[in-house]
Design a protein around this nucleic acid. Sequence first.
RNA 1: GCACCCAUAGCUCAGCUGGAUAGAGCAACGGUUUUCUAAACCGUCGGUCACAGGUUCGAAUCCUGUUGGGUGUACCA
Length: 588
Amino acid sequence: MDFITQATAKAVEELFGTQITEQDITLQQTRREFEGQLTIITFPFTRFSKKSPEQTGTEIGNYLQEHVAEVSGFNVIKGFLNLVIADSYWLKLFNESLSNPAYGKFTPNGKKVMVEYSSPNTNKPLHLGHVRNNLLGYSVAEILSASGYEVIKANLVNDRGIHICKSMLAWQKFGNRETPEISGLKGDKLVGNYYVIFDKEYKKQIDELKASGQTEDDAKKNAPLIREAQEMLLKWENGDEEVINLWRTMNGWVYAGFDETYKKMGVDFDKYYYESNTYLLGKDIVQEGLEKGVFFKKPDGSVWIDLTSDGLDEKLVLRADGTSVYITQDLGTAQLKYDEFGMDQSVYVVGNEQDYHFKVLFLILEKLGKRWAKGLFHLSYGMVDLPSGKMKSREGTVVDADDLINEMVETARQRTEELGKVEGFTDQEKSELYRMIGMGALKYFLLKVEPKKRLLFDPNESIDFQGHTGPFIQYTYARIRSVLTKGNYNGEKASAITALVNLERDLILALNNYASVVEDAARNYSPALIANYVYELAKLYNKFYHEEPILKADDGNVKLFRLQLSLATAGIIKKAMKLLGIEVPERM
RNA sequence: GCACCCAUAGCUCAGCUGGAUAGAGCAACGGUUUUCUAAACCGUCGGUCACAGGUUCGAAUCCUGUUGGGUGUACCA
């Protein structure tokens, strides 16, 4: 639409003798209740036209109609100049660009971006919060990739530490050599059970110690189980063979379990980092910071950075005994990633409880003079709450990822069978369809909400399959495919179409928005923008489908054109859904 | 205490860099199928955009303050 803003700038200059830039012009899509497709807001021009908004609009409108071939008419309502763009323009746009299968694919921009997401702990299974993380990360990676970036999907696995030792210890003590093979349990579930057992037994011990007169704090420190866990961690750090072997075995179980869940969610990674390899990193950065005078040493030998002038606190970066803290390894890992890939941008998909941590991390790297620090971004998302409040693994108040996925697929099966939609499907096609629909509902449910907002999930109210949902969009796609099949459409282009009905024009306008929505979504790291766009598109198509005959159109050319329009719409729906990691079925 | 995030219809959410009468879905009620898939479409009901100021021709949107909710502020990760 650049030609309109350009012409408007010219109009203002010639009519009112003032030079304005294109940024001064607000061009928006005309609201449905008015005639026209593009609207220019003329209030800002009254300053130099010295005329009423109506008069100003009329003069610009006249100018545009006269000088711009595509402008076939206009109307002015208050400060709004509504332009009627000739159908020939929309038809040309549709034929030359929007209906092209390549539309919506951006040329590579030569930039590299890493998206780190998932980043699980290997002591418990994935829950709904992780599902949100994984879907967000995967979708953002897809969006960035579609908009021209080279994307590296990374997973930083938190595979070591005291919490891992807790599960290991509980298994040793109470496990009776249980394995996934023996119990038939998924590996991550099995290990997670022992994490819970540890916590239960630990609490028992604390209560006993408290009963014998210790304070709560002392009891927590002195409980034999926590002591043993700490010893185990030390042994792990010293490479104790027995501990390391147990660690390998149990983590192996967990990875097998995670892989299964990842597969079901449809997410994947190009690069795995393990904290067991990176937890010692960062000490040379501490050294570098000391040399540069960014960090300082306290008398006890601990190393700090003073961020009070930036409105933050003093932050420890290395303990007095020379060991790392969380931020130390994150500094080191950031450097490691950059050294390895040299990316321009790096996105961390991590919950909003770590907002402060990432603020500090990025600020430190900037102060250290890392050129790449300005490309770092924390994609912070709100937690998923249950009606009862926060999910807590240790208390068992979590919605398990696998259970939820299975329930969704099962509900999809029931719904579909109730509707009697699977005649002529093979068993395999059926289960494939149920999986697609169940996952589509779940993914769409989680992605349609702006990432930073908290999300409420009520397990008692199942996720909808009607209305503003994934299945609605999938249904629209399947419906289009059905029309195309019935019409034996072979991609032939309609000729001699000169005028459009309103809904045809609306669809073309909507298709035309796709490219800028993808750009927006990439810039804002927001799958929600795609989700809401594709819903609007599907809704519009359904209206069109209902009101205008396609196969039964009177004119053969009109029929051909509507098929063409349908095909293009299906194409964009499929592409947009792919950016959300959602598949669309040919029939449903 | 301080810092950050959030607050829009009964419920779940859109509303981008300020623009026309604040929009969807769900729920409730009513209608549409001898016609291309009714997981659809159409209609009715439903709002003090938390509150109070300010900036502006114009504020749900920007600024300040207040209230409510969440999170963080560990020599845990």
